[in-house]
Amino acid sequence: MIEMKNITRYYGNFRALNNISLSVEKGEILGLLGPNGAGKTTAMRILTSFLPATSGTATVAGFDVFEDSLEVRRRLGYLPETPPVYPEMTVESYLNFVGEIKELAGKVRKERIAEIADRIGLTDNLQRIIGHLSKGYRQRVGIAQALLHNPDVLILDEPTVGLDPNQIIEIRGLIKDLAKDHTIILSTHYLAEVSMTCSRVVIINEGEIVAEDSVENLEKGATGATHYKITLKPSESNDWREIIDKTAGTKISAELHEAGLIKFNLELPSEKEFDSMFEKIVAKGTVFREISPVKASLEDVFIKLTSGEERKADA
């Protein structure tokens, strides 16, 4: 549905995107993730044919964004970073205007406005002036605008910015729901949003793709070691620590003593050497209360992948 091939974009001498290639299948939600200035918005603007690429090609629904820009724009809903609203208009007259320039005929336009307003929770605000709305409602108007002509492809630049937590949950639900009959690309800083809504993630840093995978795979691959959260009741001889320390590559951190129990985080290099170690500890009379694996969060992946400078310095 969406294809980018070797897209590079310069602003003067500054290279905003470097040789980016990605593709999104029909019905997929792709999350574009990256720190500020990574090139997410530039990539989205190229797909919407708002900006030309310096080199490379991109197609949306089979049409080239540069050669067949008009056909692309007919099939595309776009929510830019700043909702593109006219503050002096009412919500209804604004949506009506958008419907007109998106080629919706009079009767269909009215129905769609009512339908979308209902879905996004704008029905009670249709007669209000956009300039008087709160940021969250303005953002909703922006989303409504992108959905109005029921496009095949939705490109949403930070769709949940400025919303309160309840609204964020609603909008995320809405996005998931939309994926049934739309193909969606969304960009965000919120990693939680990606793991909740997206089927696939592309992480961009300094104009380059640094990772591309499903959310689960990225989380799995984040660290070489495996982390466990452990709570135990030590035996009288209190020799559990000695046994762990003897096993090569282990690391104990965040140790906490509490009512006769000891809690700590344990890092193990590989799965094979556990068994004998745990057996030895248990044999000496220590009782385990909790052993739970800690998954690396997307935050860890993100920080690891986007702070390359620091990693080099460490090594």
Binding site: T48, S49, R73, P80, P84, Y86, P87, V98, K102
Partner: peptide, 14 residues
């Protein structure tokens, strides 16, 4: 200035 140009130029209007 108000970024509504992005709406106009990404809509099917010349």
């Amino acid at each position: 200035k108000s970024k509504t140009m992005e709406l106009l130029l990404t809509s099917p209007i010349s």
